[in-house]
């Protein structure tokens, strides 16, 4: 993906109201891969006893990152929507840590884009969560 398109994708993702509300920043995008960061914030806490952020916020991050990877795939168009997303929560995210989501759009057909996403907090090699999803592809793009 050239710099102009990367810049456009960055502005687009970061301007999405819900992504801005969660403080997401796009780190990298291109050729069917994307990386998005979400810094720790007290308003995202799901368990006040431990300070661990809520799974819902991580779902939103992974959904966004998966969608971004589809947008950047050469065979898919810019517009896409989630068909389904299955999220596995492997462990609690470390309180205070920024969560990094990395998505790979590994296959695109005329109608469907298939994506794998993982979310890490830098505290362990085991991701916090992993997801697989199917996304829509614009008609006539592939």
């Amino acid at each position: 993906m050239d710099d102009a398109r990367t810049q456009m994708a960055r502005q687009f993702i970061e301007s999405l109201p819900h992504c801005a509300a969660l403080g997401m920043t796009l780190e990298q995008i291109g050729d069917g891969e994307a990386e998005i960061l979400m810094p720790y914030s007290e308003k995202l806490i799901g368990d006040p006893e431990t300070g661990v952020i809520h799974g819902g916020a991580i779902s939103a991050l992974m959904d966004t990152c998966a969608g971004a990877s589809v947008m950047s795939h050469p065979k898919a168009g810019f517009a896409t929507a989630t068909l389904d997303l299955r999220i596995d929560y492997m462990r609690a995210a470390k309180p205070g840590a920024t969560i990094t989501a990395h998505a790979i759009c590994y296959h695109v057909t005329r109608a469907v884009a298939f994506v794998r996403v993982s979310a890490t907090d830098g505290a362990s090699d085991v991701p916090v969560a992993a997801a697989t999803g199917a996304f829509t592809v614009e008609r006539g793009k592939s």
């Binding site: 999405l16 819900h18 809520h54 819902g56 939103a60 991050l61 992974m62 929507a81 989630t82």
Partner: peptide
């Protein structure tokens, strides 16, 4: 709320916000 939007063009709610709502 406007900050739940994920697609300003349609406009549509963010899929992640809906997923979070279901999980909660």
């Amino acid at each position: 709320r406007p900050d739940l939007i994920g697609n300003p063009m349609l406009p549509a709610l963010h899929g992640g916000a809906l997923a979070a709502f279901l999980e909660v």
